[in-house]
Amino acid sequence: MGALLLAVLLAAGPAAAHDGAPPVAAERRVYPVEGRLPVIRTAPEYTLAALDGRTVRSADFAGKVRLETFIYTRCPDSCPLVSAKLARLQGLLGARGLLGRRALLASITLDPEHDTGAVLARHAATYGADPHGWLYLRGTPAETRRLLDAYGGVARPGRMLAHSDWIFLVDGENRVREIYSERLFNPERALADIASLTATARPR
């Protein structure tokens, strides 16, 4: 085949050479080369309000593993699916004795102007959220926008509710260790990941 290929191409005439500049020899860095749950990035810090009105800072979660997602109560597509899967995961975490003590779920509203504390509380009740382990959080519009941008464009500027379905797994040192998408999010798999991180996290 190679000979035929050459014959055809030689008959057609040589193609123009496009030798680019030779690549620079690599300055080698050491990277983790295998394994699940690499450090993807540092999670953005935030200050938000919980349903009971208390102020919650991401720094308060140090030592705990958390799943963080962005939803809004009028969301017609992925958010109800995310919330249903988190409800399942909440049950799994509770059964393993991890919920609240070692691991948290955090649903942050993308739409704080509509999603008042009362609206969010009704939404949380719909999914049976246990306030000790599944937090619904709300920021000012400015803080929400800043957080969405800091998380890599969860929602597009000017079209705030056109959003991704990312679910972030954050370790006890505030580092993103996995990003799930709703469509392929498996609560049992997430439980294994959380359990793996809690086994190495230092409770504070």
Binding site: A26, Y31, P32, V33, G152, G153
Partner: peptide, 26 residues
């Protein structure tokens, strides 16, 4: 398709959507 010198081995790299490197596999 290649190592940095244009030879072998190739491999793959993973980046955040923002373009920051996460890790490399040869």
């Amino acid at each position: 398709l290649s190592s940095a010198d244009g030879g072998l081995p190739g491999g793959f790299a993973e980046f955040t959507n923002a373009g920051d490197l996460i890790r490399v596999f040869k």
